[in-house]
Write a protein that binds this DNA or RNA. Structure first.
Length: 482
RNA sequence: GGGGCUGUGGUCUAGCCUGGUAUGAUUUGAGGUUUGGGACUUCACGACCCCGGUUCAAAUCCGGGCAGCCCCA
């Protein structure tokens, strides 16, 4: 047996931070040499994964009645300041432009509620205009004071923000639930990133929201990373923008607004981290920029091989499978290592050996196994293998995730679990302001964050608050956090 | 926000302590031999993060800045 050789000297499980830095560089996802703190260049391989994720997400949004728009990146100060908690929450992180409009400062959007609502004030007149559901694909800017990490916490990030308006609170709350369903359907089921939908404690909601539900994922080191969040916007915020409509009986009413923000660049960080291994990227079939790489072996009768390669390329392309032929004069071994490192799910090997049997060899990235497939069945096989591939990745990610969440009954247990990279579930006094003191203890003494309470299921609590010993009101989840 | 480490061709790296001609590999370009799991070879191109200080002389010493990584908040 030869020694097992991997592309990375650094192990993902033992040294996640360094593995992550190295894979971003080696797989050509980003280039960190731009020279401005917190801003990265996303290279073609990363851009194409992000683009595929955007397309899937946007298509899901349109399926649920959303329309696209493109709003300006610049927000005038007066809009921004209209709602006090919003400005308080974001002011420290705003990039202000040097060039003013008259005396008024202009901000680079940290998020676009205050741009959308300016227009919703004009667009929404009557109940017939509702619901109004509009999203945009956008980059936003926040001057993070915390340490930045590429794709995980950057000063510019790439997301979709959906801003929806409804006639009733009931409709708006249904949308919040639908947003969680969308996160489940897209980020979890398609991208293979598991999460817990958490209703944030009162002290940790979006500035200007009545409540916030965040989706918490877990990276291989056990730290929690917030993925898409959805918010029910406070009526105070809505009134500050004077958004109103006339209802069926000609009465003036204030609409209920929600917003939802899945961040493609950050989800990419999870996708890379959750699925990758010590040979490089492992990308879900659905979002891999190249789904099938064809590696030809030219022998004595290279013409036949060439014809077969062209046919395979044409057949796959005809079924909208992203295929690339690696025709370079590199040695085959080098091609193998390279495309595995890039996370291409399938490699089709075509040479005289295969042609003699009317078969090609398909190498499968995650399991590193080879199977033989009849040339005529290739397209169907790839489709089937692709579906299996993604469900395998999903199952593996789920298994990891479930193993990361544990229940504890006392402080010592909680601390121990947190320090071994777990997310902990335990009884807690309150997720309202009364619980803030206990949350402070969690932050200071346990060096972790109260993620909140489950938004998808009702969890019955028994016993006393693990922190203060008073009667427990909720079950919370706590984790070390990015 | 705090602490630690680091910055040399596109990439990785030697040299730095003890100041004086910058090491090697890889990549790239041209050529040749190769080609079923990271080939070999010949030639060529290419670098001391920025600003200041000390000095006859700075990649090297000192100060400041910028950026990156790691650990912690």
């Amino acid at each position: 047996m030869s020694k097992k050789k991997t592309t990375f000297n650094i192990s993902k499980t033992n040294n996640f931070s360094e593995w992550y830095s190295e894979i971003l560089n080696k797989a050509e996802i980003v280039d960190l040499r731009y020279g401005v703190k917190g801003f990265v260049v996303i290279r073609p391989w990363g851009a194409r994964i992000i683009d595929k994720m955007y397309r899937i997400y946007e298509s899901a949004l349109r399926c649920t009645g959303h329309e696209a728009a493109i709003f300006p990146a610049v927000i005038p100060e007066k809009n921004f300041k209209r709602e006090s908690s919003h400005v308080e929450g974001f002011a420290p992180e705003v990039f202000w432009l040097d060039k003013k409009q008259g005396d008024e400062r202009l901000a680079l959007r940290p998020t676009s509620e205050t741009a959308f609502y300016e227009m919703y004030n004009l667009w929404i007149r009557s109940y017939r205009d509702l619901p109004l559901k509009i999203y945009q694909r956008a980059n936003v800017f926040r001057n993070e004071t915390k340490a930045t990490r590429p794709l995980i916490r950057s000063r510019e990030f790439h997301w979709i923000e959906s801003h929806d308006a409804f006639a009733t609170k009931k409709d708006a709350e249904a949308q919040v639930r639908d947003d969680i369903v969308m996160t489940e359907e897209v980020m979890h089921k398609i991208f293979g990133v598991p999460f817990l939908p958490m209703r944030r404690p009162q002290w940790d909601k979006f500035p200007g929201a009545e409540y916030t539900i965040g989706s918490d994922s877990i990276l291989p080191d056990g730290k929690v990373i917030q993925q898409p969040s959805t918010h029910l916007i406070s009526q105070h915020f809505v009134k500050a923008f004077d958004v109103k409509f006339v209802n069926e009986v000609e009465k003036e009413r204030t609409p209920w607004l929600t917003c939802y923000g899945p961040c493609m660049s950050r989800i990419l960080a999870s996708v890379i981290s959750v699925h990758g291994d010590d040979n490089g990227l492992v990308l879900p079939y659905t979002i891999a920029p190249v789904q099938v790489v064809v590696v030809p072996f030219y022998g004595e009768d290279s013409k036949k091989v060439k014809e077969m390669v062209e046919k395979i390329q044409k057949d796959l392309f005809g079924e909208h499978i992203d295929v690339r032929v690696d025709d370079s004069d590199k040695r085959s071994g080098e091609k193998f290592f390279y495309w595995e490192m890039k996370g291409v799910p399938f490699r089709v090997e075509v040479g005289e050996k295969e042609l003699a049997n009317g078969e090609v060899t398909v190498f499968i990235r995650d399991s590193r196994e080879r199977v033989s497939v009849k040339v005529g069945d290739l397209v169907e096989s790839i489709k089937n293998l692709g579906a299996e591939y993604d469900s395998r990745l999903l199952a593996r990610a789920d298994e990891f995730f479930e193993g990361k969440v544990v229940e504890c009954k006392d402080k010592v247990g909680v601390k121990k679990a947190l320090n071994s990279g777990k997310v902990v579930r335990f009884a807690f006094c309150s997720a309202d302001v009364e619980g803030a003191e206990c949350a402070g203890f969690v932050e200071k003494e346990l060096e972790a964050r109260v993620m909140g309470t489950r938004a998808d299921v009702g969890e019955k609590v028994v016993g006393k608050c693990v922190v203060c010993g008073k009667k427990a009101g909720v079950v919370v989840y706590v984790g070390k956090s990015y």
